[in-house]
Every structure is written in structure tokens, then in C-alpha cells.
Design a binder for these strands. Structure first.
Lengths: 245, 245
DNA sequence: ACCTGAACACCGTTCAAGT
DNA sequence: ACCTGAACACCGTTCAAGT
């Protein structure tokens, strides 16, 4: 980012000391590369080249590419803003946290796609997980629902971010969808034909906000999970919910 | 599948007529390969080798790998069962359709992951899309909500399927998560510590069923999307909803 | 029109050899 | 302990040459 557009590599003679390689700089370099080039531009060989070394050197600090992805994701998640305890109504804090999560994934191109195939398990992820559990509990969500819900919330936020990144990044894919929808006949698919505009309207912001509302409402609202047929008695602190049906 | 464990390639001499290659057989072969080897085992070169030809030959029938993925996904989605019109309460038909969608993605290993980076746009996808729109409309869901909702529902089902495939396929990833959760201290992350078991309990079936309920409830229930600040008047056929707030 | 081999520009990962 | 070049076994895609 601070190098501008030129990124010629420093010549490899005349530097006997070598840059002090470390797990940290490898991860940072990889994240910068991801930011600059997208997920398809990220490779161990490129990271190594940026650090002016060979790919083999990275294996001192990493088990494999998967581990690098995992480390990158957790590092990036460090930027997620954790709302201060009791700073507002729990539901607003939950939304704020998820929105921050979404933004972090969405702002760095390629990160959301990376996150879709990397279950987060680092310290930053754990901090977020802990806070999500706390918020759902504060909201009176029953235990099992809270555990499953946290998983669902993160998966869901990640998926929305990944989809929007995909739309933004590869216009090719979107153009194919547009073409497919435009070619639809009113006779064969009357509803698609009628809803064309609404289906294509990206309008990311509103749409993601709405999507978040949908999932929060779903988890906080009705629908108690049943581990075994008769287990509904164990719910605790059930507040509003209990829809008519 | 019918070849058992041996898959030696038929020698390329003594066959001047050559198998009649076509887009269809390429897609079928690719799907079989995906089934057998998973997404990481799928490559144009392998598909070509299975067809006893070179990778370059496939480019007569495909623009590139992306298009193959797209065709594979749509072909597979042909197996999704479309519920008969008015055969039951709309909501049950919606659930049945989504469940079938989920099962198709979930049963063929690798397909769900493929679907996460491939926006479906083929004829089978369109049929499903049309039916989803119809079901939501039958349920009295407002237009914009229906359009966004369909997108959300498919994205969501795909994401759940992809996550579960990931869990099943690469035990390595899951083991890392388990290790991370097990190592958590009760002092630093009391809630994670307490919820450990619930967080790890896969129990795919119940969990996915619950997840589907959550999203349907969220979309069908409250939360009208607002394109511009004042636009809520345009809703039509709004049925139950309108929560107190 | 379809097929092919060879080439191009890449991958992740391993390993023996160096410091 | 760390780094390195070279090798291994792969990729997707292009292209000139064949039928």
C-alpha cells in the first residue's frame, strides 16, 4: 500500500543479513497480497517472492497453505469492533457486532471467500464467539439455540459477504446471471420475468442490513430446536416469542 | 462407479472411431469425477483423461473451467424435487423444496462448495427460482421481500450444505477447531467453555432443519425491506406479519 | 469441425544441501 | 535453526498442426 504502483523486487545480491522472516510477517505479507490481488492472486510462491525468498522457506513457519489461510482470517478478524458491555440494548450490540464482522470480511477483497472454506478458530475468532454467546444469552435465548445460533450467524454473515464479494469481483459471473434472467420468457417463467429488476438490484447495504435482521429475528424469535422429540421443556428465560401458529 | 477400484485407461491405439464427445458427456463425466474424488480431485485434465483425450479437446465444448462448474451445478440441480402445486400448505411445500435442494447439494460431495462460488443460472436453477418466488407470493410475502428472500434462501441453504460438507470432508479442519475449543480456558472464555459440547455437536439433520426454520420464519415474518426511507406503502397482500415492536 | 501434443505460465510440497 | 535451488507432480489455457 505504501509502495505505490511500483513493486520491483530488491535485488537478491548485496543483502547478506536477509529480512528477519517470521510467522507474523508472512501473515501480514499474505494479507497485503490478498488485498492487492484478490484470492486468486494469493499463493505461497507469490508471498515468498514478495519476501524475496523461495516458497520452501515459508514451511518453517507454516504447516501448509490451509494454515496460512486460517492465520490470515484470524488476523483480519482482529479488526472487528467488539461493542462495550451494556453500552446499549443487547440486540443493537448484536447487530453492531455482526455488521462489523460483515464489514471486515466485505472490505478486504477475497477475505470472505477465504472465510467460507476456513472455520475460524484463532484467538480473535474466539473473542467474537464468546461475545456472541454472551449477547444471545443476555437476550434470553435458550442454551442450545444460542450455540447453534452463533454458528449460524457467523456462517450466514460470511456467506452474504462472500456472495457480495463474488458479485463485485467477477463481473463475468454476474453478467452470465443477468443474461440468463434477461433471456427468460414471460410464458415459461412468469414470476422471474416479473421480478427481474428486484432480483438483480444489488443495493448491497440495505440488502445486507435486511438479511441480518432476518436471521436475528429468526434465531431470537420462535422455533426451539429439538435434540430429541421431547425436549422442549428445557427452554429457559424465554421472553417474547411463542408465536400464535 | 461401475468400474470398481480399477481405473486403468483404455489404450489409445486400436480405437480410431473415438468416443463421441459432447457437452453432455463432459458434464456427466465431470460430475462422476466430483462424486468419486471431491472438488479437489476435479480438474479439466482429469476429466479429459477419463474421456481418454487431452485437456485441450474440452475447449470445443466449454469456454473454461468456470463454465463447466456452472453446467455441473445446474445439471445436478435437476434432481431437486419440485413439490406439486397446492399439494399441501405453502409453507410445507417451501420447506420440502428447500430440503430437497439442501439434500442434493449435501449428498454429492464437493457440490455444495462448488455452488458457493457459482451463481446458478441454468434452466434447472430457473425452475427452482420460479417455484420459490411462487411459494413466497402464495405465502403473502411482499414483492421486494420475496425477490431478496429467494436469493437469501438459496444462498443460505448452499452455505449450510457447504459447511457440513467441509466438516465431513476435511476432518483436519474440524480437528483444529476442536483442539482450539478444547484448549480454551474457563477464565478467559467462560461461555465458550460452558457451551463447548453444544458448539461441537454436529447432529446435522436436526441442525439443518432448525436452520431452515429460522430463515423461513425470518423472511416470512417481520422486517420489511426499505429501498428508500419512505417506501413501505407499496407492500401488497401483506398477510399476518406486522409485529408489535 | 473436431482433435491433438506440446508449450506456457503457473501451482503446493518435499528434500538434499548449504549456512 | 533457518534458508535455498531444484525437483516432483500437478494445474488452466493457448496454439499450431493434423484429420
Amino acid at each position: 500500500m505504501n509502495k505505490g504502483t511500483t513493486h520491483e523486487i530488491v535485488s537478491r545480491r548485496s543483502r547478506p543479513a536477509k529480512a528477519p522472516l517470521s510467522r507474523d510477517v508472512v501473515v501480514s505479507t499474505a494479507l497485503e497480497l490478498l488485498e492487492r490481488e484478490g484470492l486468486s492472486g494469493l499463493s505461497l510462491r507469490r508471498v515468498a517472492a514478495t519476501l524475496d525468498t523461495g516458497a520452501a522457506s515459508l514451511y518453517v513457519y507454516l504447516a501448509n497453505l490451509d494454515e496460512l489461510h486460517s492465520l490470515m482470517l484470524d488476523r483480519a478478524l482482529g479488526a472487528v469492533k467488539l461493542p462495550k458491555a451494556r453500552s446499549s440494548f443487547w440486540r443493537d450490540r448484536l447487530k453492531a457486532l455482526l455488521l462489523s464482522y460483515f464489514r471486515v470480511l466485505h472490505e478486504h477483497q477475497g477475505l470472505a471467500q477465504l472465510a467460507m472454506s476456513t472455520i475460524p478458530s484463532g484467538p480473535n475468532s474466539l473473542r467474537i464467539l464468546e461475545m456472541l454467546l454472551g449477547l444471545l444469552r443476555e437476550g434470553g435465548v435458550e442454551d442450545v439455540k444460542a450455540a447453534w445460533g452463533v454458528d449460524l450467524l457467523t456462517l450466514y454473515v460470511t456467506a452474504i459477504a462472500a456472495e457480495q464479494s463474488l458479485r463485485r469481483e467477477s463481473g463475468q459471473v454476474l453478467r452470465r446471471v443477468e443474461a440468463a434472467l434477461s433471456a427468460v420468457s414471460a410464458e415459461e417463467f412468469p414470476l422471474i420475468f416479473a421480478f427481474k429488476k428486484a432480483l438483480l438490484s444489488g443495493e448491497g447495504k440495505n440488502r445486507s442490513a435486511w438479511a441480518l435482521d432476518v436471521i436475528i429475528e429468526g434465531i431470537v424469535g420462535g422455533s426451539v430446536p429439538h435434540r430429541s422429540p421431547r425436549d422442549t421443556s428445557r427452554s429457559r428465560r424465554v421472553g417474547s416469542s411463542q408465536r400464535k401458529k
